[in-house]
Write a protein that binds this DNA or RNA. Structure first.
Lengths: 209, 209
DNA sequence: GTCTATAGGGAGATAGAC
DNA sequence: GTCTATCTCCCTATAGAC
């Protein structure tokens, strides 16, 4: 059924609509009728593409995570081997931010429903989440081994801290505000140098408007 | 009706149970029957204390925010006037963490449903959220004015960044793990000094276990 | 592929007994 | 204060027409 172009388009339209509705109404609050209305068809038609409501949310959770993993991995691997760990963190932060904003409906839907879906769905998605966590942990550990970071920083906590802060951006980011690259640079600056630390020449930033 | 001790106790028991259920099932996924079961009474009885399901979630959102505001405000005001801004941030972080963990069910319920409740409820709660944001902004701005922080740090973003990171802790904190004070100190260390910055003598921390 | 109609279950809220 | 019984509404998922 996926060979048909019409079917592929409809499937994607339904998935996008579902992300939008799950984002606003949560797992239980989302109805097939609401998704159908957003996607401009009738509720019964959704079942041609997705067997159950759970299949829909599962596809949303997994695709968001896969996109994030690929984006950050590729951005970091694309760096020259001469790149500093400061560069690696900066690039990873930018890739993470850019992606979660780009697929904002999926990111927000994930944030808001991942704690409410049936266990089977959450456990399957957890594998991907752990993959992503270890991708970041490798980046941070690399920085310690190369002695670019202070050796007593708690890097497992630093990872939780950084990702928690980055993921929160989808809640307040406004497309009309500061450009995304500026935000990424400012966040990287605070992560790397802190509020007190001396200013690194590469991360000078403009005052907030 | 609140004069009766029995009523006060039941009311609190229902509220605690509701926070627990809202946390696990979201706004729409929470049923009055599930709350009643958790609170050891029947669904109809809840309506003696709360007119509607919306009254329940509204009480949870507001009480969580009020407790957080009071806790951080009191902790910071209790500092001697000689306290450094490093101390103020450290104390605020500790108060925030301690409170959101202490009322963990309410915090998690808030995190997970605040994007799904009817607009009227969210807007009323927003006033409190903004109060809390400006409390933190004052703490940060004070640090800049006293020249303890580097002057080009983007403090509005720093606030969003810090609170995003701190709030994420409720998702991964385990009571049996590292003591809360250690976590608060490590987070404060990363916020203030960054990953690269030189180590401040007051924030030496143990390696993660 | 997409529709309409509907079966079967469960929700919030109310009424009145105790 | 708390219970049971129930009204009314809306949900997921299916069946079969087109």
């Amino acid at each position: 059924m996926k060979r048909n172009a019409k079917a592929v388009v409809s499937r994607k339209r339904i998935l996008d609509a579902a992300a939008c509705i799950f984002r606003d109404f949560g797992y239980a609050g989302t109805t097939m009728r609401a998704i159908a209305k957003e996607a401009n068809l009738e509720a019964g038609s959704i079942y041609y593409y997705f067997g159950t409501k759970d299949d829909l949310i599962s596809a949303i959770l997994d695709s968001a995570m896969l996109e994030l993993i690929e984006s950050v991995r590729q951005s970091v691997e694309a760096l020259p081997s001469s790149a500093s760990n400061r560069d690696r963190i900066q690039v990873a932060i930018t890739a993470h931010l850019t992606t979660i904003i780009k697929i904002g409906d999926y990111t927000l839907a994930t944030r808001r429903v991942v704690g409410q879906v049936p266990d089977t769905i959450r456990i399957r998605n957890k594998v991907l989440r752990e993959q992503y966590a270890s991708l970041w942990q490798n980046i941070l550990n690399h920085g310690r081994e190369s002695h670019e970071f202070r050796t007593n920083a708690n890097l497992a906590m630093a990872r939780l801290y950084i990702l928690g802060a980055l993921n929160w951006t989808v809640e307040w980011y406004k497309p009309k505000g500061q450009p995304l690259d500026d935000i990424a640079r400012d966040l990287a600056s605070i992560v790397l140098d802190g509020l007190v630390g001396s200013q690194h020449p590469e991360s000078v930033n403009a005052p907030v408007s």
